[in-house]
């Protein structure tokens, strides 16, 4: 199959590559450049596990062809805060509020939440639930994911955390 040249900036590094036209962005990320933090959960664009930011907006990377990412900037879960000691406020909130269990939906949830908070820095519970509708989690029942997003919203706005979000003493 013919190969098409692409140049994509992923988590701060620019990659020049050649891909088959049918290659999905998520497969290119995982298999060609080894950014395996982004995962695949379905083949019908239903689960959101593959969510990344493209030019700052969340996209399902299984619904984007690698060639469509040509010339664009992609941020994955691995590029939010390099190193385990650095945390994006949304990552920190998911840990603090136990917003993950197996962690498979987590990269997508975190990036979808970042996008949601960009568009709506102070969302209601219902707005969070509707905003994350495209991301499935089988482990958490979403209760703590919603709390995580509320917690992150407060952190990012410099507000105090209400008691119901802090989850008790450690």
């Amino acid at each position: 199959m013919s190969q098409i040249p692409i140049s994509v900036t992923v988590d701060g590094l620019t990659y020049d590559d050649e891909v088959e036209p049918r290659t999905l962005l998520v497969h290119w990320l995982r298999e060609s450049i080894g950014r395996v933090g982004t995962v695949v959960g379905c083949d019908t664009s239903s689960c959101g596990a593959c969510t990344v930011l493209m030019d700052g907006q969340s996209v399902k990377s299984c619904s984007v062809l690698a060639v469509q990412a040509n010339g664009h900037t992609v941020t994955t879960i691995q590029g939010l805060a390099e190193g385990e000691d650095n945390w994006h406020p949304v990552q920190a909130a998911f840990k603090e509020c136990h917003g993950l269990q197996c962690g498979y939906c987590t990269p997508g949830m975190v990036l979808a939440s970042i996008d949601l908070l960009q568009n709506n820095p102070d969302p209601s519970e219902q707005e969070i639930r509707e905003g994350l509708e495209g991301n499935l989690c089988r482990c958490t029942g979403y209760h703590n994911i919603v709390k995580s997003v509320q917690y992150a919203a407060n952190t990012m706005a410099g507000k105090d955390q209400p008691a119901e979000l802090t989850g008790g003493a450690r």
């Binding site: 805060a81 998911f94 008790g168």
Partner: peptide
Amino acid sequence: RPLRRKEDARLLHGQTNW
């Protein structure tokens, strides 16, 4: 005690081994 999980740092940074 509701200790935050040790697992989470790698899971939240995409340092996973699926």
